[in-house]
């Protein structure tokens, strides 16, 4: 058990190193000159004196060889210092922490509600294939998948903000601000979670150990509760983790529409402004978190499925 966890953590550290190199190289891909960009944002004078640009480049250490730059960047990054945003002149670490907090809250609310609906619905549909619940579920899944969030978001604003006037339209002030973006975000994950739950439970219900449990006198419902749910939840856990990692930086559309100060919007604006430190820090944070979530999922897998402990040896 501990051996597996240590193994996973070692992989995690190695991956993070690779990510840090990649993150450092991101700005090199664009041909914008960071020193120019910074000066532009400060003086908004298109005719920059080349000496001034050169001076700032030296000041920022951008004239040093790349490996040296990387090591100094990595050294600071390891201490949680990703430099200052060119645009806002705030520490990048603080900006990312704030934005990540918002995105995690949003993603977990959306995925949590999606899961709360999907698990019972998918299981109920699987218990009676072709039945009423199953038919309703299929219809719901298709509707949810076919509803684009950039359509749903404005429509929900129209209904709940403009007509009913019960929810705030945008921003991030109270828990009510969370409702509309979370609703828009949960559509597709809810559909996929339901589908995965249904498929997993169909398989589990047909499993030999369910027949054996029923031969001991358990009703179908008891057999599914005692022996089906844990086996059936493995694929759902995987799916949840994938979506969670994806939503952290991937809910750009929703964050922009609802003016939610999350990671998606932070990175979107950093790209627009060529804000290199924010891009680097955000990249490391997002990819690092994805890897961390994957590691946690792997460990959860082992916890859920005792046979995995055996296959990795004691």
């Amino acid at each position: 058990m501990w051996k597996i966890i240590l193994q996973r953590v070692a992989i995690l550290v190695m991956m993070l190193f690779i990510v840090s190199v990649a993150a450092f190289c991101v700005p090199l891909l664009s041909d914008g000159d960071p020193a120019r960009t910074i000066l532009l944002s400060r003086v908004s004078d298109l005719d920059l004196a080349p000496e001034a640009v050169e001076a700032l480049r030296r000041e920022l250490g951008l004239d040093r060889p790349l490996p040296v730059q990387y090591l100094s960047w990595l050294g600071s990054a390891l201490q949680g210092d990703f430099g200052y945003s060119f645009a806002s002149r705030q520490p990048v670490a603080a900006e990312i922490t704030r934005a990540l907090g918002v995105s995690i809250t949003l993603a977990l609310s959306a995925l949590g509600v999606a899961l709360l609906v999907a698990l019972p619905l998918g299981t109920a549909a699987a218990m009676r294939p072709g039945g009423k619940v199953d038919g309703f579920t299929t219809l719901l899944i298709q509707t949810l998948v076919a509803t684009p969030e950039y359509w749903f978001a404005p429509v929900s604003v129209l209904v709940f903000v403009l007509w009913l006037g019960i929810l705030p339209s945008a921003g991030w002030q109270s828990w009510e601000s969370l409702i509309l973006p979370a609703m828009a975000l949960m559509l597709r994950p809810m559909a996929y979670f339901t589908q995965v739950t249904r498929a997993a439970m169909r398989e589990v219900i047909a499993a030999p150990y369910i027949t054996a449990a029923r031969a001991r006198g358990l009703s179908m419902n008891e057999a599914v509760v005692h022996h089906g749910l844990r086996n059936g939840s493995l694929p759902v856990v995987t799916f949840f983790a994938l979506w969670f990692a994806g939503l952290l930086g991937g809910s750009v559309v929703i964050e922009v529409i609802f003016a939610v100060p999350g990671m998606g919007r932070l990175l979107y604006e950093a790209v627009v402004n060529n804000d290199v430190p924010v891009l680097q820090g955000g990249f490391v944070a997002l990819v690092g978190l994805s890897i961390l979530i994957n590691t946690i999922t792997d460990v959860l897998y082992v916890l859920f499925n005792p046979a995995m402990r055996g296959s990795h040896g004691h």
Binding site: R216, P306, A307
Partner: peptide, 18 residues
């Protein structure tokens, strides 16, 4: 399970792995 019990061919897959 009370009056009539059953045994099956592949005992290992008849047990819930979790």
């Amino acid at each position: 399970g009370a009056d009539i019990s059953m045994l099956f061919q592949q005992p290992q897959v008849m047990l819930d792995p979790t």
